[in-house]
Simulated scan of single mutants.
Amino acid sequence: MAEPGRGCPGLAPHVTVSGTHRGRGESSAEHHPLGDGAWLTRLRYTGLAAGSAREHRSTPAARIISVAVLTPGEWALTSRGAAIPADPEQPTLIALDQSAPFDFRGHGSGSAVAAHIGHARLTLSIETVHRGLDHLHPGLALYPVLRNHLQQLGAVAADAPGLLPTLATSTIALFRALLISAADEARGELPGRTPIATIERYIAEHLDEPRLTAERIAAAHSISARQLYKIWPAANGPLTGYITARRLERARLTLLTQPHLTIAEIARRHGFAHPTHFTHRFRAAFGCPPSAWRRGNRHPADA
């Protein structure tokens, strides 16, 4: 007997969850809040089915978009009538709109890490979201970046779940940029695409490069730096501050998930040419130097 999804945080009420005919439907799930209605789920299952049989009209505030990493295994997924191919050798990144028809069948045993995000938080039209979802594929530059990011979030959820809300902004920004990338590729170089969305995607793809300057960003989009500053939305904050904030968010996640890396290595990995500059910026943003933050958030097993 199918059970409604309303008992699972992050799942829309109309989503049903049940066992498959080839399994007992055993599963265990941990649900962690990301803030503003977004959730992260860590799932282990044996013989699990989930889905929605028809389109559900939803406002942007009620519509939930999910992105997940699924381990290789005996599973099948269709979304909006199209089959999503599974990689038999490595984890697969999938994404879907819970208000659209979808059907997941995990006949064997497997696991997943999934983020459930309100459509409104992506600040994209549903047409762009669906175009991106329909054309998501491993060849996109941000595909492995978001896949690895979600896997790291799963590790954070296991060791220090209280930190997850602080990482929500970077998670949503990566997912948004991936959707834009997939949608842009699907429709080609159409003149109507949003320039700021394209610029944000470019920043996300080159964020860890130290020489990511306004001049370089502007040149990549055939405009002047002055034009770039003029069209850059005030809601994003100053351009340099936006880049620094995104770098610090990634670095803070790496401090937790890559304990073998030194502070200097993490600084260089995330676009900071000088470790002292990284430490200064980190302290200003989070109230303590990166070394103290790492010690204070270290899992007991790692101490």
Results as ranks from 00 to 15, higher is better:
Thr92Met: 08
Ile243Asn: 05
Leu142Ala: 11
Thr198Val: 09
Pro88Asn: 09
Cys8Ala: 14
Leu207Lys: 10
Glu189Gln: 03
Lys230Ala: 09
Pro165Leu: 01
Asp36Cys: 12
Leu43Met: 15
Pro101Phe: 05
Ala204Phe: 00
Leu248Tyr: 00
Ser111Asn: 04
Leu167Asn: 13
Pro60His: 01
Met1Val: 14
Ser125Val: 02
Arg193Leu: 11
Pro138Lys: 14
Ala234Asn: 11
Arg211Leu: 12
Pro33Arg: 07
Pro275Phe: 10
Trp39Ala: 11
Gly132Arg: 06
Asp208Thr: 04
Leu34Tyr: 12
His149Asp: 00
Ile266Lys: 08
Leu190Met: 03
Tyr242Phe: 15
Ala301Pro: 02
Pro4Thr: 12
Phe104Ala: 02
Ala50Asn: 08
Thr279Val: 09
Arg6Tyr: 13
Gln227Phe: 00
Glu30Met: 14
Ala141Tyr: 10
Ile217Phe: 04
Leu146Ile: 10
Phe282Ala: 13
Ser224Gly: 08
Leu140Asn: 02
Arg269Phe: 02
Glu185Ile: 07
Arg80Glu: 10
Ala220Pro: 04
Glu74Val: 15
Ala95Gly: 01
Cys288Ala: 15
Glu205Pro: 06
Ala157Tyr: 06
Thr244Ala: 11
Ser79Glu: 00
Leu70His: 12
Arg201Tyr: 01
Arg105Thr: 07
Ala301Arg: 15
Arg57Pro: 07
Glu89Ala: 13
Ala157Asn: 05
Thr213Val: 09
Gly81Lys: 03
Leu207Trp: 02
Pro210Val: 10
Gly23Ser: 00
His270Glu: 07
Thr262Asp: 09
Ala120Asn: 08
Leu255Ala: 07
Gly10Ser: 03
His130Leu: 03
Pro275Arg: 10
Pro72Lys: 09
Leu228Tyr: 01
His149Cys: 01
Arg57Asp: 14
Ile199Gln: 00
Ser109Gln: 06
Ala177Thr: 14
Pro275Thr: 08
Ser79Asn: 03
Ser28Met: 13
Gly188Ser: 07
Ile117Val: 11
Arg283Val: 11
Pro13Ala: 03
Asn297Cys: 05
Asn148Glu: 13
Ala61Met: 03
Leu77Ile: 13
Thr254Asn: 04
Thr279Ala: 12
Ala204Lys: 06
Phe175Ala: 08
Pro161Asn: 05
Val15Gln: 04
Arg193Trp: 06
Leu178Asn: 14
Tyr229Lys: 04
Pro191Tyr: 10
Ser125Phe: 04
Gly7Phe: 15
Ala284Asp: 11
Leu140Thr: 06
Ala95Arg: 02
Glu205Phe: 07
Gln98Trp: 05
Gln98Val: 00
Leu228Thr: 00
His274Ile: 09
Ala141Phe: 10
His21Met: 00
Pro195Cys: 06
Ala100Asn: 01
Val17Cys: 14
Ala234Thr: 12
Leu212Glu: 05
Phe102Lys: 11
Phe286Lys: 00
Arg176Gly: 00
Pro233Asp: 01
Thr166Arg: 08
Ala86Glu: 08
Gly132Pro: 03
His32Arg: 15
Thr166Tyr: 01
Ala301Ser: 12
Asp97Asn: 12
Asp87Cys: 05
Ala214Gln: 02
Arg121Trp: 06
Ile84Glu: 08
Phe272His: 05
Pro91Val: 04
Ala29Thr: 15
Gly132Trp: 05
Leu178Tyr: 14
Ile172Glu: 11
Arg176Asn: 00
Arg187Trp: 13
